[in-house]
Every structure is written in structure tokens, then in C-alpha cells.
Design a protein around this nucleic acid. Structure first.
Lengths: 232, 232
DNA sequence: GCCAGATACATTGTCAACAATCAATTGTAA
DNA sequence: TTACAATTGATTGTTGACAATGTATCTGGC
């Protein structure tokens, strides 16, 4: 019944939406995940128009879940929509990154650390250590995207100690917008090994359980991470 | 066709949703505004269940716009929903207020101020001054809710200089959660005049156009505002 | 009496048709 | 040619019906 199959794409027009994601989620969640991936991978550039009917046809589902997925993406800061007008992929400016997203992100992480110093057990620290190893592997293979995602996972793992839903929500939005920024501005050959090593320092600081000390290092790291990955 | 009229409510069960808001908005926006009002006024307490069918029946519209309104409210941090389960009114803890919402709010305002020092013209400052007068009126009448809303408007007016959509979004969410906090914890007789006077000091600082100076005062003000209104 | 499985009900998830709105185009007159 | 109003087509907004899921209730066996 639909012009495009749900799983196949033989047409000339490349189809970003093919349910790459899990089977167990609602259509809305799957749609949101797939569109998000198309955006943060750079496949859909800022300003691109997202038409409900077009996407629903490509995915082989109705417009309802697509509409709700677009609203979710709007809450994540990835798209912008206004009444009776097409939804478009959002853009991000450098000023917002430096003076808003990065400081807010810092607050989120310090908040999580402050109230969970007691929860940094062996298992937790070991997981972080594994992530650093993964970063080093990505660095050796010069896999920029892989390293950035592992970097985000590192910080996300710390935030996961926090159980409040809204904290996670702000984090999701801020990090997604930082991803938009990276896609636009990342250097071709940043010092990836440096990034991995910096996280090893952070991990060691965590073991001290001294919040002042951690806070200082963390502030330093997050403020400088951007310049390591992007043009000034 | 619907058990409850859209504009009337004669039943024994009080009906919080009656389209109190503007006529020109989409049903989704009106629904979101009305439910939001019911929450931040304290009519709907944290943990209250929001059932799509119930609300749509009370408002006399279909479930579609209600569903999307609930998603908007979730993005605003006012409700929490999980798949196939009722949406519930969100709660907020003191730690989140002190160590996350307040610092994030500070970042947002400083960001807006930093990049708009040149835009503080006479009209702009006059508007802020009028708001302070309104605060004083509310203080005299001991109208706590009115003063808090005027307080929020004051800060919102500064943020409005910023044109990025995502900034406004974070602000909306943070302030809504701060409202939840106020409803729960506000003292019966806080020093309302003090609040109004504090904003006069802020306004005077703005005229200096010295960001360092403004930043210091602002940080002081926002950190202490909470304790003026709430129990320790 | 109490627990496990089956059943019924309430609630959310999805769909396809219809309505409202907006942007572009076309036609018309100055 | 240009300005402007009507028309058309594309897109989002809304609706009611149906499907999927989760929760509470009932039933039977121990």
C-alpha cells in the first residue's frame, strides 16, 4: 500500500529512515531514534525540512507516531517546528556552545557527582576504565565519531547515577546540540589520544572522592574539550 | 456527544480544564496551557494521574491534541510518562533546585545579558522598571503568587533578548520546575517587599553595562532568592 | 487462607480520513 | 513591468475507530 517498503530502499532517492533501531520499541520511539541518527550523523543538515507525510511514507507507518517523534526531537533541541509550518533541522551557534551548553553540561555533571560520591564503587569505576580503553582504541584507529560517542557515554555513565527524569532530559538536549556543533566544526585530525588520556585523569580524580578536587579538574576538562575537537 | 461541555461544568467533580486560555491557538497549545495552569497553581498535585480520555472528554476535544500536549508538558518538566502507563504530575526535590535548577537558570540569564549589553535601551529598562512597580503593588497586597509571576516575567524579559529557540526551551522547563518547588515550599509570609527591592538593585546594575559587576550581583541575587521565598 | 494463572477492563498506541492553514502561482489591472 | 488579489496545491491540525498493552479481578488448586 505504501510507495516505499519498510525495510527496503531501491529508489534513487536515498532513504535515511529504515528502522535501524530495536524491534521492541513503540513506533514513535523508533521513528525518533532513526530521525535523530540521521541528524547527528550529518545526513540531515541544519535547515533541512522534515515533512510528516514524507517520513511516514518512507517508514511505512502513519503520521501520528511521526508527529510525536518530531515533538520529542524538538524537546531534544534537534529540530524546530512552528504551527502549520514544516519542521526543520536545528542549527547551533558557537556562542551558545561556549557560554551556555558547556556551562550547563558542567552543572549537570557536578550535580551528579556531588550527590553520588559514595556510589563510586569498584564496578562503577571499572566500567569507566573500560570506556577509556575503548577511547584509546578509537584514537589509534583515528575513528573520530566512535571516540566522541564513547566520550559521551563516559559522562553519561556518571549522570546515570542520578535518578531524576528531568536531569536526564536536559542532558539529552544539551548533548544532542553539542553533537550538532561537533558535526559542523570538528577538525579533521584532532589529538584523539589526548582526549582519552584526559579522561584517565578524570577517572583518577574520582577515586579521591574529594569533591573540591574533582570539581576543579572537571571544570578545566569540559571547558577545554571543545577546543581539542574543534576549530577555535 | 461528550459528557462534559467544553465551557460549562455543572458536575460534582471539579473540572480544571475549561479553555481558560486564548482562542487563537491550536487545541494542542490550549490544552497544554490549561493543564500547565492546573499544575502550577497547585490544583493538580505531584503524582496525580493524567488520563488522556478523561482530559479530552472534559475539554470536549479528541485525544490527539491531548497526547501531544502531554508530551509538551513532559518536555517542560511538569509531567512524567512511560509507555502504556498513565502520565503523572512531576515532583521536584530540594537538591535539584539548589544545585541544578538555580545554577542553570543563572547560566541562562548571564548568557542573555552577556550578549545583549548593547541592547539595554531606554524602552527596555523602562519595561523592567514597570515590572518592579508591579512587584511592589503585589507586595503591598500580600499577593504572593502575583509577585512570583511578575518576578519570573522580569527575568523572562531579559531572556527574551535572546533569539535562540533552545535557550527559551531550557528556561521554560527550569522555571516550571522552580514553580513546582515554590508551590510546595513557599512560606506563608515571606518578605515580599525585599524581593521587589532586590530587583531594583539588579535593574540599576544593568545600566552600568559592566558585565563583571552585573554578573556578581546576579549570582548573589539568584542564589538567595529561593531562601527568601521558601523554608530553608 | 493463599498463591498462580486466566480473564476482563481500563488505558495508551496506531491508523486513515477529513479539516484548517499557509506558500506559491496564476491571473488581472494599473 | 509591477503590484496585488484570488486560486491552487501542499502541509500540518484534528478526529473517531480500532489495536496493543498493562493492571486489576476472578477463579481454581493446594
Amino acid at each position: 500500500m505504501n510507495p516505499l517498503s519498510q525495510k527496503q530502499n531501491k529508489g534513487q532517492n536515498p532513504n535515511p529512515f529504515q528502522f535501524k533501531s530495536q524491534e521492541n520499541l513503540s513506533l514513535r520511539q523508533r521513528a525518533a531514534a532513526d530521525i535523530r541518527l540521521a541528524i547527528i550523523s550529518g545526513e540531515l543538515k541544519p535547515g533541512s525540512k522534515l515533512k510528516e507525510l514524507e517520513i511516514s511514507a518512507q517508514m511505512g507507518i502513519s503520521r501520528g507516531p511521526i508527529r510525536e517523534a518530531l515533538r520529542d526531537l524538538e524537546a531534544m533541541g534537534l529540530v524546530i517546528s512552528s504551527p502549520y509550518r514544516e519542521t526543520v533541522v536545528a542549527d547551533v551557534q558557537k556562542e551558545e556552545v561556549v557560554d551556555l551548553l558547556v556551562p550547563v553540561r558542567l552543572q549537570l555533571e557536578l550535580y551528579a557527582i556531588k550527590y553520588n560520591l559514595a556510589n563510586f564503587d569498584e564496578t562503577f569505576l571499572q566500567t569507566l576504565n573500560t570506556m577509556i580503553s575503548n577511547m584509546r582504541l578509537h584514537a589509534i584507529k583515528n575513528n573520530l565519531f566512535g571516540l566522541v560517542e564513547e566520550d559521551i557515554r563516559f559522562h553519561e555513565h556518571i549522570l546515570s547515577l542520578n535518578d531524576t527524569a528531568y536531569t536526564q532530559q536536559i542532558w539529552t538536549g544539551v548533548v544532542n546540540r553539542l553533537r550538532l556543533h561537533f558535526i559542523k566544526n570538528t577538525q579533521k585530525f584532532p589529538n584523539l589520544t589526548r582526549i582519552a588520556n584526559d579522561h584517565a585523569i578524570l577517572l583518577e580524580a574520582l577515586t579521591s572522592k574529594n569533591f573540591e578536587h574533582i570539581s576543579n579538574l572537571w571544570t578545566e576538562h569540559i571547558s577545554h574539550e571543545d577546543s581539542l575537537l574543534c576549530f577555535s
